[in-house]
Design a protein around this nucleic acid. Structure first.
Lengths: 214, 214
DNA sequence: AATAAGTCGTGATCGTTTTCACAATTATAT
DNA sequence: ATATAATTGTGAAAACGATCACGACTTATT
């Protein structure tokens, strides 16, 4: 790929920008300044300009950015034209929330299949997504490169090994377990208890005004 | 408070350390080194030592850390002795997942009440948590300082205003909306679509080996 | 006792991310 | 036409965070 030099912090904000540009476009807005965008997404306007500048000069001085142009540019950059298939492992409450979330709408990401061990769930379809038996993981998952883990912590390691075995390269882990994977697999952790506890800690120990943090 | 100088990055890792120390303690382990901890939580051992050092010299050279002592210390530091009450707004799938999660176990955080507008849910109890009508928010929420927002994006701004009005100081926002709050309110965003899209972006654009990131 | 092995705490360094601040340019108003 | 206001893109500085590397100390071994 070409833009390997884009900072990770910037890359993480791109989906956010993309979504808000989409909103603006639907509202029929033709132009937008970094200042307006800043108010909407709560990111400093200089940071936004810097982020955009990694992709070249996308705006016009004294004018701002053309919404349609910017949107088109990001669509290409974020590979929005190409669908990414995802498998979801664990159809509990959290997993079900994902199945009802329409990632296709803005993101071109498709949860193509789900797995669970509960016989009441296996064979059903939730939010248009078929639920397979976790025992059949190896038969069904061919071709999928990304998995969302919404299973109990105790099962995380075992399932992870099986996923890696099947050629998964990215895992979004909602389990409290810190899973162990080979070097070339990317894992993002989202730990709900940690997030909540960290928020509480900040409230107790940090003076007000220190806010606005991702 | 005393430790205002603790870096935010460190503060975010404290709950994680705390949980793993708890595990070790339950396993009956008496001592642990930064290296062992590093393997378990996937954080560089030097970073762990640095993190701990902000609180003083908690370990012993050549020995490591005493699990029980460290745990006791963190319990105090993280205010684990004092329960924090939380309100959950929006009892959909994601909200329900929270209600079944036992935050008390390790964290001393208690979801004390939930709110929804669905008449089928109002008046019920989910995971020991009573579900009230969102219309009664102002009557019920007195004293609660932290809220979890698991409602549709379209309602985020309206509910946020009401929460702020009632004296909420911290919000964990699972809504895609970037809510606007006064300076002294702390908001943490967890945006599921952004997390998933960012993961996909990294997989496509970053070379392997760049992994292991929080 | 003496030696070897293990481990912390931290000064120094390095890389990343954010923010400031301003020249250059464009749009708008008179 | 001219003057004023708006806004970008970016060099430079500051803030933040992660990691190296090693002296000092503790424990284990012979």
């Amino acid at each position: 790929m070409d833009q390997n030099k884009i900072p990770q912090a910037t890359a993480k904000r791109l989906p956010l920008y993309y979504r808000f540009l989409n909103n603006l476009n639907h509202q029929g807005k033709k132009r937008v300044s970094s200042k307006e965008l800043s108010d909407a997404v709560k990111v400093d306007s200089a940071t936004i300009r810097r982020d955009f500048s990694y992709f070249g000069a996308l705006g016009k001085k004294g004018y701002g950015y053309n919404v349609e142009y910017l949107l088109g540019f990001f669509r290409k950059t974020l590979d929005q034209d190409e669908t990414t298939d995802v498998a979801l492992i664990g159809v509990g409450n959290l997993g079900t929330a994902f199945l009802h979330y329409n990632f296709m709408k803005n993101n071109n990401i498709l949860i193509k299949m789900a797995f669970d061990s509960d016989p009441d769930k296996v064979g059903t379809t939730i939010g248009d997504v078929p639920v397979y038996n976790i025992a059949d993981l190896e038969d069904k998952i061919a071709g999928v490169k990304v998995a969302i883990l919404t299973i109990p912590a105790s099962e995380a390691d075992g399932i992870t090994d099986r996923l890696v075995e099947q050629g998964i390269t990215g895992i979004l882990n909602f389990t409290p377990a810190r899973i162990t994977v080979p070097e070339h697999i990317r894992v993002h952790h989202i730990d709900l208890a940690v997030e909540l506890q960290a928020l509480v800690y900040f409230l107790k120990h940090y003076p007000l005004e220190t806010n606005r943090l991702e």
